[in-house]
């Protein structure tokens, strides 16, 4: 099936590996360890066109760079948005960046979500934890052209309620009548009235026509693996389920070899993959 997904995006017209200075416009804390940054090119130019699901290499002067998914509105050519969890030295420095500071950006890289294949279909978006940020551009795009899609079911899983990012926005999505947004946490205290359990446990109850559905999954590998399994069991074809994979990345241009996943370079051939193509790898250890 031809899709814009398979059209290899032209590598960004920049010197490979050289970051371009961007200015931090704002930094907003999402959770204890996660923040959302809004960045604009320091030279006042437009940001390069990007598609939902692509990522940038975000650089901190003197520290290093990390692969971070685009999580803002892909149609906005004035700023880029990244939601980052402080999980190491570099991401900690990114999360700590404050307004006015310069960060480096190169990208966008990779193959994004096949938005064209979702048009006219029911859409299932399943996110685990920080898997929501890479799917947020999908939601923005679909809500902007809501009439082009069938039912939209969003299922979000998180560790605990305090680990939820975009909390106010989630509440506004949950109030919309043109999509269903379910949130499930692994465990909660008494201050949580929502669902607790597996995000996959919401699948039987989700409303979509399996044979006419496209599903985008992003989250911890085991969450995506289990979700894809259960979606397929409900009748969604393995060709219509897409996963965003994560591997160690250094160069983002398929040169450094770090992100190899079987025959694929996650940075170039992914990060979004069709479930049918990677199903065997998902069940093989240490690939």
């Amino acid at each position: 099936m031809a899709s814009e997904h398979f059209a290899r995006p032209a590598p960004p017209a920049q010197v490979p590996m050289a970051p371009v200075p961007y200015e931090v416009r704002s930094q907003t804390a999402e959770t204890d360890d996660t923040a959302t940054l809004v960045l604009a090119p320091a030279d006042g130019t437009h940001v390069p066109p990007a598609r939902p699901g692509q990522f940038n290499m975000v650089y901190v002067f003197g520290v290093g760079e990390a692969a971070i998914s685009l999580s803002g509105d892909a149609s906005d050519s004035t700023v880029i948005v990244h939601t980052v969890r402080a999980a190491g030295r570099i991401t900690e420095a990114i999360v700590r960046a404050s307004a006015g500071q310069a960060l480096g950006v190169r990208g966008p890289y990779g193959r994004g979500w096949p938005m064209d294949l979702a048009r006219g279909k029911d859409v299932v978006l399943m996110a685990g934890g920080l898997g929501l940020p890479p799917l947020r551009p999908v939601l923005y795009e679909m809500l902007r052209h809501r009439e082009q899609y069938g039912r939209i079911e969003v299922m979000l899983g998180a560790r605990t309620p305090k680990d939820l990012v975009y909390y106010p926005e989630i509440q506004s999505w949950r109030h919309r009548a043109d999509l269903r947004f379910q949130v499930t946490v692994d465990a909660a205290g008494r201050d949580w009235y929502g669902d607790v359990g597996l995000v996959t446990a919401r699948i039987p109850d989700a409303r979509f026509e399996p044979a006419n559905t496209v599903a985008f999954l992003c989250g911890p590998e085991i969450m995506m693996k289990n979700s894809a399994r259960d979606l397929e069991a409900r009748g969604v074809p393995a060709t219509a389920i897409w996963l965003s994979m994560e591997r160690n990345m250094k160069c983002a241009v398929a040169l450094c070899g770090h992100c190899q996943y079987g025959p694929d370079f996650v940075c170039r051939d992914g990060p979004v993959f069709r479930y049918r193509e990677i199903r065997d790898r998902l069940s093989c250890r240490e690939v």
Binding site: V15, M17, A18, P19, V20, P21, E23, A42, F61, G100, Q101, A102, G104
Partner: peptide, 16 residues
């Protein structure tokens, strides 16, 4: 070496 960068005010400049 791939590039060198130097601080310039609040920003920086990269020289390949």
């Amino acid at each position: 070496r791939l590039w060198t960068a130097r601080r310039e005010g609040t920003s920086f400049a990269v020289t390949p």
